[in-house]
């Protein structure tokens, strides 16, 4: 039994990509909270959504491993967001153009 065991000193470490992605996400979180307190007038909301999109992109590309995936899988991942865009675009069109 003890012969099979690995030496205690060796601790498994995740790859640098994952660690960097994690640090990046927490940094962006700090950034978006800080920026939300700055008087950017009507830009606060676009800034918050852009940072959210970057964070989502990081999660998708690195944690969800999309950067290693084929075009078909990426298309599947994008499909939901594409159709969400249709829903928001045509759904909001009515409310934005009412007179």
């Amino acid at each position: 039994m003890s012969g099979i065991r690995r030496p205690k000193s060796r601790i498994w470490r995740p790859s640098t990509d994952l660690v960097l992605c994690w640090i990046g996400l927490l940094t962006l979180l700090g950034l978006t909270v800080t920026l939300s307190y700055q008087p950017l007038a009507s830009f606060n909301f676009p800034v918050a959504m852009t940072i959210a999109a970057i964070k989502a992109g990081l999660v998708a590309a690195i944690f969800m491993e999309l950067r290693h995936r084929s075009g078909v899988v990426c298309a599947f991942a994008a499909a939901g967001f594409f159709w969400l865009a249709i829903l928001l675009w045509l759904g909001l069109m009515d409310f934005l153009t009412r007179v």
Partner: peptide, 22 residues
Amino acid sequence: GFLVWGHHMFVSGQSLTASLVF
């Protein structure tokens, strides 16, 4: 088929722009 749903709502009070697009 996902781009046309508003044609069920022409008389509902949705905006004329939306109705035209749909």
